[in-house]
Design a protein around this nucleic acid. Sequence first.
DNA 1: TTCCTTGCAAATCGTTTGCATAATG
DNA 2: CATTATGCAAACGATTTGCAAGGAA
Lengths: 133, 133
Amino acid sequence: MALKYSRQRQVIKDFLMTRKDHPTADVVYMNVRHEYPNISLGTVYRNLSLLADLGEIKRLRVGDGVDHFDADTSDHYHFVCTECGSVIDLMSDGLERITETVEAANTGFDGEIIGHVTYFYGVCGDCRKKTLS
Amino acid sequence: MALKYSRQRQVIKDFLMTRKDHPTADVVYMNVRHEYPNISLGTVYRNLSLLADLGEIKRLRVGDGVDHFDADTSDHYHFVCTECGSVIDLMSDGLERITETVEAANTGFDGEIIGHVTYFYGVCGDCRKKTLS
DNA sequence: TTCCTTGCAAATCGTTTGCATAATG
DNA sequence: CATTATGCAAACGATTTGCAAGGAA
């Protein structure tokens, strides 16, 4: 169970940190390959999962059936454009009491809420401009 | 494009309305088969998607990689147990201003937010009891 | 040398689709 | 009759896994 260093894992994490657009495993694979030509897709998946389990990156499920990954592990939300599929960061200020609010509204609920997942969807700025033309 | 009646679709919808636990396509298939032995999985998928597109049922994506379906189309949230995977309804009172709150916190964002998807996760009541034993 | 990690390919899983046939309007 | 829906099986796309070989501690 002890973790050993791997060049591949490092390259994957480094790549992810350069991107703010939440790439999928496949996109990570395509890009990392430039710099590490014979890395395999399986290794990319294995390391993305491992890093996500370790909490070093975040796995994003935004409803498009494909996992996206984010090197920014700070608390924030995401916006998904229904036109182009792009995933954009959103601040979460003002929503830090969501869990308390839901607990208050569900007094009969006897489970323990540990967290929540939220994403917003709509049309991104770029797609709105295109629609106007 | 005009919709035609189908016994299968009716049975699927009827079944879904009897359940409050948000079954998956496969669970719908298994159950509907009791009463309609040679219905096919493909037909179940086709009709669940159709009903969801029509807005007669809701498709739930709760992060477990499998679609769940809910005949209750009213506004409410869901709780997913990380132990047993069960999906439980939650009232959404007090959270109707989520979009406005996020918009206020993201004044630089130039997209249009149309809606959001949220689910809560944690340990359900039943699983908490089992943990204590 | 131990045992974690890789590359590769095959396997899995949920879901979709093509097609000939059956049912609806 | 025109068209939508079905059953079946094959196809799909994303992700996972088994295994023998490679690399880190």
